[in-house]
């Protein structure tokens, strides 16, 4: 990689066992001169047959860090540490965690044990920090409408980074910060983002005139096939409904007002 052109980097998180969206995203990346692919964690949840995700990540050399879901599976914890507090949300979180736990092989859990909690690298001369929820807490929710700019600036300072990228909330957003810093939430590759559309999202980091840029790329995939597979696996109807309608049906009580207003439920 020459210093004048740092190339482009792909980031995503929240696969949630959606192997069809992952496959489609990887195929899309193959057409775009991507020089590095990073996964920000949460390989399982919601979706069917979680083991299908692992060979895709390994075959494409995706550098992966651990999310709260991965950490729970790796350490045989009784729950997913998603950070929900509402009993209905927790009920569905439990169903999907128990399913995912039962259907993740010991070999894959071993692999999860090897994952780091964060990844750092230099890109176009800037210090990039990738993590799952936030640099300080794996399951911290960073929503656009509840994350002040001064808070993000403090994170950059405390964690010695110019660019911070996270996932965990399932909703993508980015904010340019003073002194050429950038914060990105990559949203989720495995679940539509509560806007009535079936697309899911990944992020491309690039460089333009000395600034790092983040572009969100929509991913279309065979969502009908995924919903059929989810039903065949006996997963809750609420989960397949989200895949088909693009609206979240569970885990809503953690949404702040602005984000909640954008959804249907």
């Amino acid at each position: 990689m020459s210093s004048s052109s740092p190339g482009k980097i792909a980031l995503f998180g929240g696969i949630y066992a959606n192997h069809l969206a992952l496959e489609a995203a990887l195929a899309d990346m193959a057409t775009r001169n991507i020089t590095g692919i990073y996964c920000l964690g949460d390989l399982g949840a919601f979706g069917p047959n979680p083991d299908k995700v692992y060979p895709l990540l390994k075959d494409h050399g995706v550098k992966t860090l651990a999310g709260n879901y991965d950490d729970s599976l790796a350490r045989d914890l009784p729950d997913c540490q998603c950070g929900y507090t509402d009993p209905r949300d927790n009920h569905f979180a439990r169903l999907s965690y128990q399913y995912t736990y039962r259907n993740t092989s010991e070999e894959n859990r071993e692999w999860l044990r090897s994952l780091p909690g964060e990844i750092r690298f230099e890109f176009a001369g800037r210090r990039v920090l990738l993590c799952h929820g936030s640099p300080r807490r794996q399951n911290e929710f960073l929503w656009s409408s509840t994350t002040p700019t001064h808070f993000l600036q403090k994170l950059c300072k405390d964690y010695a980074a110019d660019v911070i990228a996270v996932t965990h909330t399932g909703l993508k957003w980015q904010r340019e910060l003073p002194s050429n810093k950038l914060f990105i939430n990559t949203g989720a590759l495995g679940r539509p983002e509560n806007d009535g559309s079936r697309e899911t999202w990944y992020t491309i980091l690039g460089e333009e005139g000395g600034r790092i840029t983040a572009e969100f790329i929509p991913v279309s995939y065979d969502s009908e096939a995924l919903a059929i597979e989810m039903r065949a696996e006996g997963l809750p109807e609420e989960f397949s409904e989200t895949i088909e309608s693009g609206w979240w049906t569970t885990c809503l009580e953690i949404l702040p007002a602005k984000e909640r207003l954008l959804g249907r439920y």
């Binding site: 509402d86 009993p87 009920h91 009580e253």
Partner: peptide, 13 residues
């Protein structure tokens, strides 16, 4: 736990 913050408290399954 977390009774004062917006998330926390008791809902229903």
């Amino acid at each position: 736990g977390a009774i004062c913050s917006n998330i926390g408290g008791w809902g229903v399954e």
